[in-house]
Every structure is written in structure tokens, then in C-alpha cells.
Write a protein that binds this DNA or RNA. Structure first.
Length: 413
RNA sequence: GCGCCUGUCGUCAAGCGGUUAAGACCUCGGAUUGUGGUUCCGAUAUGCAUGGGUUCGAAUCCCAUCAGGCGCCCCA
């Protein structure tokens, strides 16, 4: 037997019966984000590898071990693992810094990360996200978080937890890193291998570790003291306080999580995550934050920016299932030419209509109609002779016979 | 990369060393020569992921391979 080919590990077909959910989320994103003045942008799925190693940061797992990278005529090309870097590239390349700030962009599309798939995690997955450029004030942070919450609400997702944190700026972060390193130093040999690595490369991410022995060490009072110390500088603290003030006034429920550290190197100051309790271990539906140095780092004028991304698969898995849409009409007839012509006429008037292509028996055609359509349009011998059509409401079982010419007028049924 | 679990029809499954490999849904055909969605009848796996082994006998036990799922890590 010929071998059956299957989808690649970690990828999935989005089948017709679930496509309505995707359209729903995309439409809501457009609706809600447009209300805040965001415009959609579509950037390529492939970019030069350097964009991600420079943009996302080469100490991150994403860049280190999760990228789909290949060589093509001497260039190293990568399937985008996230879209902030791509949007920033486009912002710079298209001179959007000359536009009046803020520049507000949103996107949706597939991303690729080479990881072991599990619940809520695929190798090809889809994100919907936003980026806002040019505003350094915490009003931008507040608007973006507020919009994220409102978008989720518009989908019917109300009971999600919003967590926020401030990572400070490069200056205060450096100080914090050093403090953390010095207090952890005595325990260095007891930490897990990953943590020992992180200790050198990115101490902030130590706090994310889930290994029990590491967690225990982090519980020690002198370490807790550093973790919970308000290390951020006055300016950063003011920014953070103002953000919280806005969120309070806007009625956004949130909790502060000092351990919330993003795995992407480009974040500074505000970071946030939105989590659900109904997702299993991959419980973040949204993650985002401020990245004030990224534009400059990628060769643009220094431009403050903030954004977030949401996992579409995770969002959709939280939504109630939608019933598949039914066809407006199904033509039931053994006169195929007439059926064709009449179906076309109905289609020209905007209806979704199918006809039987195999000339099945009347009862079979009606049975099919009842399964997939709201109305059966019956064209039998009588109707053909009199230029009529019998319209049967398949839910109620009622039926009327009318002139075919009039039928069009009555189609607001 | 590491741990755990699982592979029986298109789908969901029963099966626990000897069965004709249940059942349900879907699909198709018929009862019903112009009235469906409720009813009734019938069809559909020489086959239990693949390859070895144990046994008189394997879907059932063992090993390997492959595939899928879940968890760690990380993230959306």
C-alpha cells in the first residue's frame, strides 16, 4: 500500500469545522484594535536570521535552540519565531519614525519554534499581537494592557488573571543583577545546571526556575529580600506607579508578580502576562511588555515601544465551540439544468446554495438538504411547468409554493 | 535534550492468551416511484502502528522501531 503522508510533528490542519472560530478571533481583533487606532500590518514569514539573533537576543532559548534556520544562496534565513522583530524591522525600513507618534500596528499569523510539542504548544502556531511605537509615557503601557483585556472580554473571556511587573531600565537592572548574583553566590553549586548557566548569562531568568531544589534556595530570607526589594530607580518606579494608577482608574484587575520575567531579552520596565487556569501547564494566553531599546538596537532612531502577543490556538481552546454555519438553501430536483439555473439565480442574490450533482432520488436529496441547509428549494415537475418553486423551511417543516420570479423578493426569510 | 503514558474501521471505542475482533456515530444503499430531520433493514477491519520473539495458539505477554499524547525546560 502507498504510504500515507502526514502533517509534520507539531503542525496542524485548521479544518473547515473550526475555521469559524479563527475568523471570529481575527474579526474581533480587527474590530477592537481599530477602535484604538491600530492598523494591521503583514510582514514576511521569513526574515534574515540576524534580525532575530540581534532582535530577540541570542541568549534566549527561542534564538538558541528553537529557530527554523536554513541557508539559501549564501544567506541565513529563518522562519519567524515571533513577530516583534519583524514589525520593528518594517517600522525602521519604511521610515515610520517620520509618522506622527504613536504608530500603532497589529498583526496575526503563523510563527515557528522548534520545540517538543505538548498541550498548548505547537511548532507552527499563530499569534495575534500589537506594537505601539513612539510613546515613552506609561499611558501607552496602560492603553495597551487595557486593550488586551478588552479584546479578551470581547471574545467572552472574562476570568483571566493579569499579572504585571517592572524590570526597570538597563541601569537599575544591572544593579539588581549584581545584587542577585552576590546573594546567590554561596549557593551556586547547589543550583541546577540550567540555573548555573543562567547565573552567568541572564540572572534575571533564574527567578523562573521550577526545579524544587532551586525554588527552595530562592525561598531563603536573604534571597527573598533581594527579589522583593524595590531595586528599580526613581524614574522607573514613577513610570510603574503611574501605570498602576491608570490601570486602577480604568478598572483593570491585575496582580503584581515580581517573579514575572520575560524570556526575551528586549524587554525593559513594564512586562505583563495574562493567564488562564483552564489551559494546562502552558497557561499564558498573552505576554508583552515595553522594549524601549529594540528599535535603536536594530538600527533605527531610539524609539520607545510596547506591545504584546497572544497565542491564537490557546485563545480558541478557551472559547465555546461554535455550531458550523448551515447553507441557506439546497435545491431538490431531478431536473438538473433547471436546478443549476435556479441555484445560480439564488447565488446572484447573495445566498449560499448547493445542488445535488449526482441526480439522487428525491428523498435522498431532501435528506441531504435537511442536514446541511436551512431551506430546501424544491423544483419538481409541477413547479417546472408553472415556473414555480416550493420552499420548505427545514427546521419548522413548513412549505410554501410561489412563482419563481416572486421567490427572489421573498428571500429575506 | 530528559521523564511518563498510549497506538484496534473515517471518528469514539469493547476486548485482559483460544471470540466469527462487540457496540455507537459518520458514510453509503434499501423500506418509501415528490417530502427530510424521529423509525426499520442492510453494507463497510482476513484486520488490531511496524518488525521480531515467547506460546500448540497473540489484538492481548516480551523486545525493538515508528507514530501520537502529556510533563520538565521555555514560551503564546
Amino acid at each position: 500500500m502507498t504510504k500515507i503522508l502526514k502533517v509534520l510533528k507539531g503542525t496542524k490542519d485548521i479544518l473547515p469545522q473550526e475555521i469559524d472560530m479563527w475568523h471570529f478571533v481575527e474579526k474581533k481583533a480587527d474590530e477592537v484594535f481599530s477602535k484604538y487606532g491600530f492598523k494591521e500590518i503583514r510582514t514576511p514569514i521569513i526574515e534574515v536570521t540576524e534580525l532575530f539573533s540581534r532582535g530577540v537576543g541570542d541568549t534566549t532559548d527561542i534564538v538558541n535552540k528553537e529557530m527554523y534556520t536554513f541557508e539559501k544562496s549564501d544567506r541565513s534565513i529563518t522562519l519567524r519565531p515571533e513577530n516583534t522583530a519583524g514589525v520593528v524591522r518594517s517600522y525602521i525600513e519604511n521610515g515610520m519614525s517620520r509618522l506622527s507618534a504613536p504608530v500603532k500596528l497589529w498583526y496575526h499569523g503563523p510563527m515557528f519554534r522548534y520545540e517538543r510539542p505538548q498541550a498548548g504548544r505547537q511548532r507552527q502556531f499563530h499569534q495575534v499581537g500589537v506594537e505601539m511605537f513612539g510613546i515613552k509615557q506609561p499611558t501607552a503601557d496602560a492603553e495597551v494592557i487595557l486593550m488586551a483585556v478588552n479584546f479578551l472580554k470581547s471574545l467572552g473571556l472574562n476570568d483571566l488573571d493579569v499579572e504585571i511587573n517592572s524590570l526597570g531600565c538597563p541601569k537599575c537592572r544591572e544593579e539588581f543583577k549584581n545584587k542577585l548574583k552576590s546573594v546567590l553566590k554561596p549557593y551556586l553549586s547547589e543550583l541546577c545546571e540550567d540555573c548555573q548557566n543562567r547565573y552567568e548569562k541572564n540572572p534575571l531568568r533564574l527567578l523562573d526556575c521550577k526545579v524544587e531544589t532551586c525554588k527552595e534556595i530562592f525561598e531563603k530570607p536573604e534571597i527573598q529580600e533581594v527579589i522583593h526589594s524595590d531595586f528599580i530607580c526613581d524614574e522607573c518606579a514613577e513610570h510603574y506607579t503611574e501605570l498602576k494608577l491608570y490601570l486602577d482608574r480604568m478598572g483593570v484587575n491585575y496582580s503584581e508578580n515580581k517573579l514575572l520575567v520575560r524570556g526575551l531579552d528586549y524587554y525593559n520596565r513594564t512586562v505583563f502576562e495574562i493567564k488562564s487556569n483552564n489551559l494546562g501547564s502552558q497557561n499564558a494566553v498573552a505576554g508583552g511588555g515595553r522594549y524601549d531599546s529594540l528599535v535603536n538596537q536594530l538600527g533605527g532612531e531610539p524609539t520607545p515601544a510596547i506591545g504584546f502577543a497572544m497565542g491564537m490556538e490557546r485563545l480558541i481552546s478557551l472559547l465555546p465551540k461554535k455550531e458550523p454555519k448551515k447553507l441557506d438553501g439546497y435545491i431538490v430536483s431531478n431536473f438538473q439544468t433547471d436546478a443549476f439555473l435556479f441555484a445560480e439565480e439564488l447565488r446572484h442574490h447573495g445566498l449560499n446554495v448547493e445542488i445535488d450533482l449526482t441526480n439522487k432520488k428525491f428523498t435522498k436529496q431532501l435528506e441531504k438538504a435537511s442536514k446541511i441547509a436551512k431551506y430546501a428549494f424544491i423544483l419538481g415537475e409541477d413547479e417546472i411547468l408553472k415556473h414555480q418553486v416550493s420552499i420548505k423551511n427545514l427546521e419548522k417543516g413548513t412549505q410554501i409554493t410561489v412563482d419563481r420570479a416572486n421567490c427572489i423578493k421573498m428571500l429575506d426569510l
